[in-house]
Write a protein that binds this DNA or RNA. Structure first.
Lengths: 336, 336
DNA sequence: ACGGTCTGGTAAACTGTTTAAGCAGTTAAC
DNA sequence: GTTAACTGCTTAAACAGTTTACCAGACCGT
């Protein structure tokens, strides 16, 4: 920068102002300096810029320490949305895995304290992750992506799980189903509880049987979904519809149902949740709720950047979902 | 830092030396200063540290601009390995997507020029990605992860595709197959060419028929694998084994074979390449070559850090693969 | 008592930016 | 006719560390 200033016979401050398009610089100087910048191939050092301006323009994404978090389509979509939008807003994205000792050493706080990042996204967090409270307390810009904590004053952007669940219940009830089971994910996630509440409320409304035996925990995995299906079938062999809290569990359920000699959707209808790519191609293709995960990520990014720039109002947004009707559901069969 | 110095009644230089475990500091001062640091909760500003030391301790991962690169198990494994190792080596990882205008604006170079990062990983690059030459020319630390360019002086860490292909040919030939087809990925990747070369050489060695009709391009996707299978079956209905250049194409091939009324492995054996997680659970489970992708990522990270720290010898490493024999292969059937 | 080495520390220069304050001349507002 | 606000630019002080040259005192042998 000094060299540019020298060759253009101006001060470094002027060069700085040229770079920042400060309106107080005359057209002539502007051009003169820019020419030298191009000639020398000068690029401002962003460490110095950040040190001086107090903005790093870097955002961190905190991922759960799952072995395959990086290859999970759920996180993948969120991450895509975040990265694309961050890029457009001139921000870089840094990856962090919330391993136990990462948290124990308070590295998530250090990221801010040591000026690594301006803000942070938390993905895949739930009630058991006590560290999120640290952010609430310290007031560092953080947004929970696709989960939320009603009791904590934290920013969040989520897909609207409640209305998604409503959509599922609507279609199942309209198809005439009366024996409906729910395979839910971890109850420590608020979104999973939302789904459960809507399920229970709608069943009650419709005057249908519900309670302990009609729900099972599928831990959000394919294997869990299969195991949960076993439980349900054992307790209620006459079940005609299974509502799974995510697509992976739905897939596990479908596989197990077929293994148990039941046809899908002939004997049992199955509905998923998430609408991950590959479920359109399984057989039968899965009826599911489309969650706008890419948009959730993108929107979260937009709002986080606003917060970093000083916005103070609480950020909380719910993005609309819609039902994707495919072949794993049908009108209830005779014996239903 | 000034405050720490003041309270400990030493100079800031001393505090700096304490933080860096400089041996010139006495045990007594060391302890005294550390106590104040803890008391004040002081954390060094890493922007200032980097500005001064010229090391950012940040590495960039350049991903291809595929819509689902983030949810791809192939990239996921590489990324996992990179991130885990980077963390252990005290480095942060930044994500970049090699979109057309990202490259057009030379942002990949800017990352270095503006001191965003010390080094970079290139994932999913091939001969068509001319930008990799920029690194070779500029001499910035970069390592190609799981691909390489024989003509360019670039660092790389790859799985050993040649020996992997040998392993596949060994098993297929031992099982008595003589009509073997290859579904290969994009020929612009050197690793794909390696597989093709080994396939051709071993077929020639064994005195078996090969040539145009026995290979098809499956573009590394499931759909591509299915389409390639159509081609092959049409040209050589008597094929008894299909060697796919990755697991996704193998899956596509298996599905299509079943649709065409051929049993796997009864009529046709199928072998994949990559050993991605889910292929152990498809039916029949897929025989494939395990690529140590996690280790490739981790090793690449280790070597990149060495290079950043001044190592000058060329980095190039090939990690061993091994065959995972599962249920999609069998001894050649009677009519083979 | 004197020069030489070792020890533990300091002050100052350096990293490369941004920005507040200022300069001298012109102009619009009251 | 004074005050105030521009004009386009410069100077200097931040920002928060690292590093180097230097220095004072302790220790040692002669």
């Amino acid at each position: 920068m000094r060299e540019v200033a020298q060759q253009a016979s101006v001060s470094v401050a002027t060069v700085s102002m040229v770079l920042n398009d400060n309106p107080r610089i005359s057209k002539a100087t502007q051009i003169k300096v820019r020419r030298i910048i191009d000639k020398l191939g000068y690029r401002p050092n962003r460490l110095a810029q950040s040190l001086s301006s107090q903005y790093t323009r870097v955002l961190a994404v905190l991922l759960p320490p799952l072995r395959h978090a990086f290859s999970d389509p759920y996180f993948g979509e969120l991450l895509s949305g975040i990265c694309d939008r961050a890029d457009r807003l001139g921000h870089k994205v840094m990856l962090e895995s919330a391993k136990p000792d990462f948290l124990r050493e308070r590295k998530h706080m250090e990221l801010f304290e040591r000026r690594f990042v301006d803000g942070m996204f938390c993905l895949g967090v739930n009630d058991r992750h006590h560290f999120v409270k640290d952010f609430a307390a310290a007031g560092f810009p953080m947004v929970c992506v696709n989960n939320y904590f009603p009791d904590l004053k934290l920013d969040y952007v989520v897909a609207d799980y409640r209305s998604g669940a409503e959509q599922v219940m609507n279609v199942l009830l309209q198809l005439g189903h009366k024996k409906i089971a729910l395979i839910n994910g971890a109850p420590e996630a608020q979104t999973a509880r939302d789904v459960f509440e809507v399920f229970s409320a709608r069943m009650l409304d419709a005057g249908l049987e519900t309670g302990q035996g009609w729900t099972a925990d599928g831990r959000f995995t394919e294997e869990g979904g299969a195991a949960a299906t076993d439980e349900i079938i054992q307790r209620h062999p006459d079940v005609t519809a299974i509502f799974a809290g995510n697509d992976k569990m739905a897939l596990g359920a479908m596989h197990r149902l077929v293994e148990l000699g039941r046809s899908v959707p002939g004997d049992v209808s199955v509905v998923g949740f998430d609408d991950i790519q590959q479920m359109a191609f399984v057989n039968p293709s899965l009826t599911t709720v489309h969650l706008p995960l890419y948009e959730v990520g993108a929107r979260a990014c937009e709002l986080l950047v606003q917060r970093v720039r000083g916005k103070t109002e609480k950020i909380s947004e719910r993005l609309a979902t819609h039902l994707v009707l495919r072949d794993s559901t049908s009108i209830v069969s005779g014996r239903g």
